[in-house]
């Protein structure tokens, strides 16, 4: 199986969906002639032209809202945010229009849009560009949220998101764009709401999404090597819908859970997962559920401190050893 980057996997997903469905259009800042701020859309403008791949002004509220309006008439816009942090200037459109129109119309309208882009820290760009709003989005009924960790997942989830008839927010990661994984050449789709056991284990469940899955895999390797602890790594892939059964199955097997996320801890995604575990698997727990989240302060610029601020293998291993 060929190895391709996360970036190329997304690019292939867009090309295949643009080819398949005339109503799919890509909209965003610098995605066409510039080939994308992170080169995720490289070559697509040259191949599909102005009509299908469009550069926008720096005007998130307008182009996100435009995508929502167009989708009501059957267009399927894939809207790039250069950073998910920029969604904050389009908050009304993304969080108050996209998820509410269907409900308020009594089901007469649906909004088949994908909004996508990187949502991560760890890149030394300071607080305003480092937000991870998957918890905001998942908080909102009417929205769906996926956070792919590998190239394989990114392609399969993106293709499903584009074909989904509801608004799907896809949160990527700039630190993953250049990483390579095996991706099959033949077409495949990954359903939203299906988690993936990235590594089987028996002693403890590390439950994560996005890049934290990769950090957990490395932590699991070290735990085995240095402490003979066999950790299971469960990749949620999708936050809403959520594969609750996979979470419970893993916890019932290992009887211990550490939840790892780049969200801040207060009202972060892992808080919800912890609540579900205690509600549905309380009798299976041999230790309290613990969380390793980003530190609860605005993202710091200074690189060594930022690296400590977001979950890393040291913090994960320390927490696991406290639990076991």
């Amino acid at each position: 199986m060929p190895q391709i980057t996360y970036r190329k996997a997304l690019n292939d997903a867009f090309a295949e969906e643009l080819e398949r469905d005339e109503n799919v259009v890509l909209i965003g800042e610098e995605i066409a002639e510039y080939n994308g701020a992170y080169k995720v859309t490289e070559g697509l403008h040259a191949r599909f032209g102005d009509r299908r791949v469009m550069d926008t002004p720096i005007s998130e509220a307008a182009f996100c809202g435009l995508g929502i309006g167009a989708s009501m008439l059957g267009i399927r816009p894939v809207i790039e945010l250069m950073f998910w942090s920029f969604s904050y200037v389009a908050f009304d459109q993304l969080f108050n229009n996209a998820p509410m129109v269907r409900y308020m119309s009594g089901g007469l309208i649906n909004v088949p849009i994908v909004v996508r882009g990187p949502a991560n820290g760890g890149t030394n760009v300071g607080a305003t560009h480092s937000h991870t709003p998957e918890n905001f989005a998942a908080y909102t009924p009417g929205l769906k949220v996926v956070c792919p960790a590998t190239a394989y997942d990114a392609k399969g989830l993106m293709k499903t998101a584009i074909r989904d008839n509801d608004p799907v927010f896809v949160m990527e990661n700039t630190l993953l764009y250049g990483q390579k994984w095996e991706v099959p050449e033949e077409e495949y789709l990954i359903p939203l709401g299906r988690a993936d056991v990235k590594k089987e284990g028996t002693d403890i469940s590390l439950i994560a999404h996005g890049r934290c899955v990769i950090t957990c895999l490395e932590a699991a390797r070290q735990l085995k090597e240095d402490h003979d602890i066999d950790a299971e790594v469960l990749d949620l892939r999708s936050i809403r819908p959520l594969d609750q059964e996979a979470i419970l199955k893993s916890v019932r097997k290992t009887n211990r859970a550490v939840l790892v996320e780049e969200n801040k801890p207060f009202c972060g995604t892992a808080a919800q997962i912890a609540a579900l575990i205690q509600e549905h698997a309380f009798d299976h727990l041999d230790a309290p559920v613990r969380r390793v989240s980003a530190y609860d302060a605005p993202q710091i610029y200074s690189k060594p401190l930022e690296d400590e601020m977001i979950p890393n293998t040291r913090r994960i291993i320390k927490t696991v050893l406290e639990v076991l």
């Binding site: 167009a70 009501m72 267009i75």
Partner: peptide
């Protein structure tokens, strides 16, 4: 008729998008 929108000015990008869809189609 596409609403009926509660937030002041919030429908203006949507209307722009409806026009975009007409032109696209």
């Amino acid at each position: 008729f596409w609403g009926g929108h509660g937030i002041v000015g919030g429908q203006t990008p949507l209307g722009t998008g409806i026009a975009f869809a007409l032109k696209y189609k």
